[in-house]
Design a protein around this nucleic acid. Structure first.
Lengths: 143, 143
DNA sequence: TAATCCTTCACCCGAAAGGATGATTTGATG
DNA sequence: CATCAAATCATCCTTTCGGGTGAAGGATTA
């Protein structure tokens, strides 16, 4: 990235230099203003395309289809003793939300969410949220 | 594509028009040549970036629904540009391992793992590891 | 040969996550 | 009514994550 900017600057400098040369010819050989502008335009357009391709890498948006039906295993849910609220947190956690985002979505404080997650980790017997999500899917608590 | 070219032409025409106006000011208000060139340069650079983005445009790619057993979608893997090592990290990440644990398992430093994860987040266009795992499963890069 | 990619590692810094613990309120239930 | 679980929030502290940047060596390729 820094390199790209550097190269861009360099090319720009060279371009300006070349334009100065051109300017010289322009004044002494009666090159028309239009041609002058045209050359500058083409030059910078090419430069722009190049830079644009460098910084915004071409990308494709992949869209995956949703999969099949699913039924929550209520039995295990009760057996482990996961409360309604905790389950809500679990769901949002599995969607990849941060604790703060979950807190905002449920209209509670960050601390509350942290309490819920801590309880979930205890009940699911895991140490991290990634493991919790995994475990929950294994137990068919989540799709 | 034809449309893009057409729009490009249109914008070009507008640009030339604006430049003519500028030229007018240039001659009558003694705008310096450097500023004139600068404006033209910036204008056409922006134009170039825009055109570049239009040409190499992100397109939607729909992923085939899952049939039978799981098979890693090598095509997407290559298209997104995830390297072997990065994929290994992705797998371990999905198993719920921490960066440190991944580092130990792959016999590399924690910093290396963090570099890989950072690259993965870029390529998968996500912000967190939980999202990365999700996305990877959507794209059928992981089971 | 030069450019590019991959892999490796480092340092800094701020944000997020997690552990431990305690406290309050509310609703259900024996 | 007393009690218990659930839900809420807090504080303190440590660990983990993630962003940004730079750099070096090896492999591949134009």
């Amino acid at each position: 990235m820094t390199r790209t900017i550097f190269i861009y600057g360099l090319v720009l400098a060279v371009a300006v230099f070349m334009l100065k040369m051109l300017e010289y010819k322009f004044f002494y050989r009666q090159l028309s203003v239009e041609i002058y502008i045209g050359i500058i335009g083409v030059l910078f357009t090419i430069l722009g395309i190049w830079v644009g391709n460098k910084i915004t890498r071409k990308k494709k948006v992949f869209i995956a289809p949703p999969v099949g039906e699913f039924k929550v295993n209520e039995r295990i849910l009760g057996e482990i003793g996961i409360s309604k609220r905790e389950y809500e947190v679990l769901e949002l956690m599995a969607k990849g939300l941060s604790n703060q985002e979950i807190a905002d979505k449920l209209f509670v404080s960050l601390n509350t969410v942290k309490t819920h997650t801590a309880n979930l980790f205890l009940k699911l017997e895991v140490k991290r949220r990634t493991q919790a999500i995994q475990r929950a899917k294994e137990l068919r608590l989540l799709q």
